[in-house]
Design a protein around this nucleic acid. Structure first.
Length: 923
RNA sequence: GCCCAGAUGGCGGAACUGGUAGACGCGCUGGAUUCAAAAUCCAGUUCUGGCAACAGAGUGUGGGUUCGAUUCCCACUCUGGGUACCA
């Protein structure tokens, strides 16, 4: 009988769904285990082969833990708000909800085929009002909270109001907007409701601030960084500028220190923790004030971590967008400066930091005064300084900072050297091991002592204050889009208020999914009657960002149908933290940091009883795809073939790999792909073809390089796909997709099936095991168990293969062996294992049949093979008894004729024996 | 630019805490079976030289530590991810 995977897989899929075998509930008698995948965004392209990689890994763990007696929560859902659906809606006019629904059902079908043990009764969709009602609710809690630095937690805003009433804000130690005034209780109590609200907004964890966005005038909309290529929009190639806009922000910076410290308690890879640490970017330093020459009361504040180099300052640089720019601009320089600021507003932050070989800048016309030497320092404006970090101004120390050095060289500014015995003529000295010189009271000190001394000196003189700075910025929480969570917010006299009670503000109907003519977000198109809730003068037009729904979904899975609360605290107490969270390393910072922030916040306010969401993290490496590119001549609709791009100024645009064969573009398909390409022109190569460029990069719908698993399942079955994806390599490693080896895994399953069949009938042998057979299965149990615990799924598959090969050699189909082997195989290939289990005649479900146990010492007394090396080079090996003493081994080895041969005329200096490992003869 | 990874045969990868580099699988070569093919089975397969025994080289590059380095240290190269509005 052949291995008919299709029949088997259909049979068990049906059985599992009919019996709801994966449905779980709280069970106080069992240990719980919560294993979660990062839920997918349901794109139109469907599931690609990269998605299941993580899902298969988590599925193996879920099944393994259940076999070990745990009550396992393993849910799945969809992160279903997002740009692609909206983009499709703009093009087709179809409501994103319809597209999303279609895509989800496609995903579901694909997921079901792979045989995952998800509890689908817990499915959630972030775009469903039943879900985003609670996303809105959490936002409201953030709005209704402030952060107290004394209690070091978020508290209800009502407590702050009480304090304002009695003492004003004199004793308040809370993060707030920079422009918050000082006031007393009298002020507060006299203020109008409006004025009070304005002040409160400066303290709330959700507040309104002015931030910079990518503005595309021609499209009349804000673009994601992803949609901007070299200063032009990816769609249509229109110019993009930076524009300030009022937006909701979340005060994540209040949590900087806790987000940093609590990393220690997490079982995450050091590299991910390192990335988060660097993202938070804590630095301790000094805030210094520089007076502006000729202005009595105007000062420029800078932040520096190197006050030891204070005597090396030769100029000041401010960011073009900084608040100082206006002050220091002199009439003479005004025109030039405005031009410069306009040109740098076209650059993205990344460009400003990347193109640092081409420093640009302009002299402001003003000077600052050195706080100690009282020397005049020219003030320059340059976009290598960012307005968003620190104070938006720096003291430039060209001898100690490479960027300042490059800038000084380019604009012929002085480079005073404050380091002894170091040459700073060729480059800056950025290490910290020199001695300070030419620096008055800091002379002859090493860097750390000089830093200390400089701090205390400047602090005592009132010239600077010690400050801890974080690179982390507050999170912008508004998007000028349609397909996202609407805010539960309305405006009265331009002051935002929350919609009360637990009602959901639903997305209103609108005629088009585009911004309005005045550049307002799409929701501004809705009439009053289009909103299910309308209050005040108008509703909020922005929607929430993609990460809103994903920042708390792991909590909703615990209690997905709850109508009175986002999650019942008894349930969140039971399921608690996610024990294992599996997902792509590309989320290393964004999603994981935001989730940690929301968890801490909800914990502060007493809604849950833990303050970190994910105990252990497994970052699966991405499956990489091969992307194709076309090259558009900048600002035109002409595409240049790959061979000729060096002659033009082009921007690189992803093209769907479906439209390309062997890197040659199908021009007709391309023209029909998107409306904007309909009238494209092409510059072809000598053969009259358009050749695309290619790159290996992450597999993603936005890169149009996805490959889907359906045809593989059709051809080989889900068990094979599951095992193959695991067999590809270590789960954390990045790997390009290719299907070359898949029949090896398929063969393995066929061989297993064949071993259990004789003359087309299932048969197993009931005899007792020989020692050899016992060792084979024992080793297999031992190796698979160890590696599954280490999440090394690829070697698990190898161990199963090795064991099977050995069993086939012995023609061993004995019941005891088959029973254990089947259970070992089950997490990896659940379909075939369930079928074999049934054929073995077992009564209980394989899912709960327990995990086989291995014997520790079996085979320990076998003779072992000991390699003998000479000066570290392996030459030959001997079989010896494991119980032999070191002395005895020495004797055997030195008298071996091969040893004498390899030594020749030389004498042994030393023999190193590592028991059970190696012998090294040094001569 | 900055932060984080990775690099081992023709290919995917293995090698526990520094101890026989190449497990397992693909591919390839030869053979068995077959009218033939598919499927299956057996043997071989890092490279160079050699009929072979064997010898030499070899884990991105260049150095270092060590009796011994894919593994530890230093300096580079290339590839990938993130870089705050893709998710």
């Amino acid at each position: 009988m052949d291995y008919k995977f299709k029949q088997i897989e259909e049979k068990w899929s049906k059985a599992w769904s009919d019996t709801e075998i994966y449905k779980v509930g709280e069970d106080p008698n069992k240990k719980k285990f919560y294993v979660l995948d990062m839920f997918p965004y349901p794109s139109g392209a469907g599931l690609h082969v990269g998605h299941p990689l993580g899902y298969i890994a988590s599925d193996i763990i879920a099944r393994y833990k259940r076999l070990n007696g745990y009550n396992v929560l393993h849910p799945m859902g969809y992160d279903s708000f997002g740009l692609p659906a909206e983009q499709y809606a703009i093009e087709s006019g179809q409501h994103p909800a319809i597209t999303t629904k279609k895509n989800i059902s496609k995903y579901r079908k694909q997921l079901d085929k792979i045989g995952f043990c998800f509890d689908w009764s817990r499915e959630i969709q972030t775009s469903s009002p039943n879900y985003y009602l609670w996303t809105q609710w959490i936002f409201k809690q953030l709005f209704e909270s402030y952060y107290c630095n004394i209690e070091n937690k978020a508290l209800p805003i009502t407590q702050l109001i009480e304090k304002f009433k009695s003492d004003g804000n004199k004793f308040i130690n809370s993060p707030c907007d920079k422009n918050t005034p000082n006031f007393c209780s009298k002020d507060w109590n006299l203020w109008s409701e409006e004025k009070q609200q304005k002040i409160l907004l400066k303290y709330r964890l959700a507040y309104i601030s002015e931030t910079v966005v990518n503005w595309c005038e021609d499209l009349g909309t804000v673009l994601a960084n992803d949609e901007v290529k070299d200063g032009f929009s990816e769609r249509g190639s229109y110019p993009v500028t930076q524009k300030k806009m009022k937006q909701w922000s979340l005060r994540i910076t209040a949590y900087s220190e806790r987000l940093l410290n609590d990393l220690e308690s997490l079982d995450w890879s050091e590299s991910i923790k390192e990335m988060q640490k660097n993202w938070i970017g804590k630095s301790e330093g000094l805030k210094l004030s520089f007076e502006i020459y000729g202005f009595k009361n105007q000062k420029i504040e800078v932040f520096t971590t190197r006050p030891d180099t204070i005597f090396g300052v030769s100029f000041i640089v401010i960011a073009p967008e900084s608040k100082y720019t206006e002050i220091v601009t002199t009439t003479k320089q005004k025109n030039k400066i405005q031009k410069y600021c306009a040109s740098s507003s076209k650059k993205s932050e990344k460009d400003r930091q990347t193109n640092n070989k081409k420093y640009t800048g302009i002299f402001s016309g003003s000077y600052a005064i050195h706080p100690i030497t009282k020397k005049k320092l020219p003030i320059w404006i340059s976009d290598y300084v960012l307005g968003s970090y620190g104070t938006g101004a720096i003291m430039a120390v060209p001898c100690g900072d490479q960027r300042d050095w490059e800038f000084a060289k380019k604009f012929k500014l002085k480079i005073p050297n404050v380091f002894s015995n170091v040459d700073t003529n060729e480059k800056a000295y950025t290490e910290k091991s020199a001695t300070i010189t030419d620096s008055d009271f800091l002379n002859n000190l090493d860097v750390p002592s000089a830093i200390k001394k400089a701090i205390s000196y400047l602090n005592n003189k009132g010239l600077g204050t010690v400050q801890t700075n974080y690179r982390l910025r507050d999170a912008v929480f508004s998007r000028q889009r349609f397909w996202g969570e609407p805010f539960p917010v309305y405006y009265k006299n331009n002051i935002p208020y929350m919609v009360e009670d637990k009602k959901c503000v639903k997305l209103p109907k609108i005629d088009k999914y585009l911004p309005t003519k005045d550049g307002e977000p799409p929701l501004a198109r809705a009439n009053k009657s289009d909103w299910n809730i309308f209050k005040g003068d108008r509703m909020e037009y922005n929607t929430m960002p993609g990460w809103a729904g994903s920042s708390w979904y792991f909590l909703r899975f615990m209690d997905p149908l709850n109508k009175s609360s986002f999650v019942d605290i008894k349930k969140s107490d039971y399921w608690n933290q996610v024990d294992l969270y599996v997902g792509g390393a590309e989320h290393a910072v964004g999603h994981l940091l935001y989730s940690r922030f929301w968890t801490k916040f909800l914990n502060d306010r007493g809604f849950i009883n833990f303050n970190e969401p994910f105990k252990k993290l497994l970052n699966q490496g991405m499956i990489l795809g091969r992307s194709n590119f076309v090259y558009r001549k900048k600002g035109t609709n002409t595409f240049i073939t790959y061979e000729k791009i060096s002659k033009f100024n082009v921007s690189k645009v992803h093209v769907d790999i479906e439209l390309v064969k062997n890197d040659i573009l199908d021009l007709n398909k391309f023209k029909n792909w998107r409306s904007e390409y309909r009238n494209s022109k092409f510059l072809l190569n000598e053969n009259g073809k358009y050749r695309c460029g290619f790159e290996i990069e992450k597999m993603s719908k936005s890169k149009y390089n996805t490959q889907n698993p359906d045809s593989l399942i059709e051809k080989y079955g889900a068990d094979t796909l599951r095992m193959y994806e695991m067999f590809l390599g270590p789960i954390e490693q990045f790997k390009p997709w290719n299907t070359n080896g898949i029949n090896g895994v398929h063969n393995f399953l066929k061989k297993f099936w064949k071993l259990l069949h004789h003359d087309h009938k299932f048969s197993v042998n009931r005899e007792k095991l020989t020692t050899e057979e016992e060792i084979i299965i024992n080793d297999c149990i031992k190796n698979v168990t160890k590696d599954i615990d280490k999440l090394m799924f690829n070697t698990c598959v190898s161990h199963l293969m090795t064991a099977l090969n050995n069993l086939i050699k012995l023609k061993c189909n004995k019941y005891k062996v088959v029973k254990d082997f089947t259970r070992l195989l089950f997490p990896f290939a659940p379909f075939i294992s369930s079928e074999v289990w049934e054929m073995l005649g077992e009564k209980e479900l394989i899912n709960d049949s327990g995990w086989p146990k291995y014997k520790m010492n079996l085979g320990e007394l076998r003779p072992i093979n000991l390699p003998i090396s000479f000066n570290g080079k392996y030459r030959y090996n001997i079989d010896i008894d494991q119980s032999l003493s070191i002395e005895k081994i020495k004797e055997i080895v030195s008298s071996n004729p091969k040893t004498i041969h390899y030594l020749g005329s030389k004498k042994i200096k030393k023999i190193i024996i590592v028991p059970k490992k190696i012998v090294n003869i040094v001569f």
